[in-house]
Design a protein around this nucleic acid. Structure first.
Lengths: 348, 348
DNA sequence: TATTAGCACTCACCGCTATCGAGTGCTAAT
DNA sequence: ATTAGCACTCGATAGCGGTGAGTGCTAATA
């Protein structure tokens, strides 16, 4: 059976209508609303074919049709017309981002918020990560008699703090000395490059302060380890409650549960890292409790090897074209800001 | 009409049962389950009195009784027997906190998580705040040709970072000089003490770097302003969905909405700051969409004037005695850790 | 041969009614 | 003062007919 032009028109009508109303679409509705110049009976016949081909399905006999995952897939790949960003959206998007944001985690947080407001879905963003995170600056700051603050700035201006509890009571000068030395030795290093020889070198150069070193080294390790972890920002989870497909509290709950498992989300985002734009529709999703959802992910770049991913999670009946246009716009904006942010690096 | 012993026993039975089952409690249930040595008919009579007095009410004629807010109030103030912390809870609580947590925001985050897990309700914590926040250490760290990192540590080891975009390109030495000077002048200052004379003094001492100063001063102000804002940590919002009182999605949504309004929560917590322990039951709560909820707040101290508040939000039918015991245990634990954390200050 | 009008059929949904059972309030007996 | 007994209330549940949106099939039509 061929997927002729008319069938496609009808499928498109069904999908548009269903995205809008969340109600099964009947042949009469299509005949009336979309002037295809054919009667409802003809539409019925075509719909019967479309169902046989697997693009639409009936929730129960004698109800209207709803798109199947396969139908959405066809729609996303071939039918959907790309929406341009509306002026107002464009403006809103800029207003969120253009403020001079100098710290990445801030930027991510604001971006997530903006996207969940613009789309009405749930947004997840992973912070940009490269192959490995390198130390740009490392400092020690004496806080009080018992603790020292470790500050590490990594490429891309991620800032990490760690308060170190010291067993003994070092003088400010000692701390200062150690800081200078660490900064000299560790600048440009990634975690895995702080290996035995390097540690030995530090111990040698700081022999004088050897009893102070262990807690500091340990702190550096934990801090760098946490810096290498993928950080997530999420926003708009409560939007989910507004959709009729989650009117059943059980469904909402199980989705929330999935959204709280960071590992799951990280995998989800990381897997899409190599596509600029990816759409996972319903059952294409491997996560069990998200099979009623679609996830649209977009990747943004920062420099050559540093990438992050934005994911928008909504019901399969989501407004794909709107989300994609907003995502595209947002990625452009973010990349601009990030370029701005990392431009400093290059001049160094 | 007197609130005799038997009435109290019956009220207690009703409340206990209702907290457990969320179902209206009937006279027969009480007669069977609690051996009060009286028949259901007698209990019925007493219940009728209790209703007249306003301690219980009927959702509809000929149904069992549920406690009224006034009933819960009596229960909380006089009837409830304090539960001791179970061993397992005790252990869990310690395991969460005892890890050497050196940064307050971490501690708060973990505490919130632990409490929402232990109680199954929603936890909100405000970070400890004193009268004003004083600068303990302030540093500038050059990041790259275009940006400088401002690090401020305040009393209680709150660490704040701010990346400053500089218009021009200062040398590392300049930044270092400025940092030293700022630290000398601003140590011990609160935001409101950085007034015109002090700013003038800085400008004078740093005349040489006058063109670099404005963005730095601005950054200090924004950073300190954000440090003085009350920070909230929340956990376990999704627990709400598990309660039958929020089976209606609309109710859940409106509560979620309230929980997202930071101002509302801050007011809520701040108002209870002067009581060690406070229970707001249902309509006692001023927030409209939380009138089906009770909020139990406990205050913890850190030093003399620095306090923070923990709030547990659940349905009015919450397990008051369990929550209170867990809260008490947690407050003790937190205070221990905080004491440990701030001990360093005293020796300085 | 493709299209369409017509019609029987399906099924969710709504409102109505009957039944059931948990629970009450009242009365009369203890 | 307590309690056994009973009539009554009311939510919850199930069954039932009507309605309407929708289908699939058939036969007539262009």
């Amino acid at each position: 059976m061929a997927l002729n032009d008319r069938k496609i028109q009808i499928l498109q009508a069904i999908i548009n209508n269903y995205i809008e109303t969340a109600e099964p679409v009947g042949s009469r509705t299509i005949a009336k609303k979309y002037n295809l110049g054919i009667s409802s009976a003809t539409i019925r016949n075509e719909m019967s074919d479309l169902e046989e081909m697997g693009f639409i399905l009936q929730p129960h006999a004698s109800s209207g049709r709803i798109p199947s995952d396969m139908g959405y897939r066809l729609y996303v790949d071939h039918l959907m017309q790309k929406k341009e960003l509306g002026e107002e959206e464009q403006r809103y998007l800029q207003s969120v981002i253009s403020r001079d944001i100098s710290q990445i985690d801030f930027l991510m947080e604001e971006t997530a918020k903006a996207l969940s407001i613009l789309t009405n879905y749930t947004t997840i963003i992973s912070e940009p990560k490269g192959q490995r995170t390198r130390i740009k600056q490392i400092r020690l700051i004496p806080l009080d008699s018992a603790s020292v603050l470790l500050v590490i700035a990594t490429e891309g201006n991620f800032i990490k703090n760690h308060v170190i509890k010291m067993g003994c009571v070092p003088t400010e000068e000692k701390i200062f000395d150690i800081g200078i030395c660490l900064n000299r030795l560790l600048q440009g290093c990634a975690l895995r490059e702080i290996d035995t020889p390097l540690v030995a070198r530090m111990q040698e150069e700081l022999w004088e302060y050897r009893e102070l070193l262990p807690p500091i080294l340990k702190a550096i390790e934990t801090t760098m380890r946490s810096a290498e972890k993928v950080q997530l920002h999420m926003s708009g989870t409560k939007n989910i409650l507004a959709f009729p497909e989650f009117a059943d509290i059980q469904k909402a709950k199980s989705l929330f549960q999935a959204l709280e498992e960071k590992d799951v989300l990280v995998t989800l985002l990381e897997e899409s890292k190599h596509n600029d734009l990816q759409v996972l529709i319903g059952s294409e999703n491997t996560v069990q409790s998200m099979q009623d959802c679609s996830v649209i992910t977009a990747t943004y770049k920062m420099g050559d090897n540093t990438r992050g991913t934005i994911g928008i999670v909504g019901p399969t009946r989501m407004d794909y074209s709107q989300v994609i246009s907003v995502l595209n716009g947002m990625v452009q904006n973010i990349e601009k800001v990030l370029k701005n942010l990392s431009d400093g690096d290059k001049n160094t």
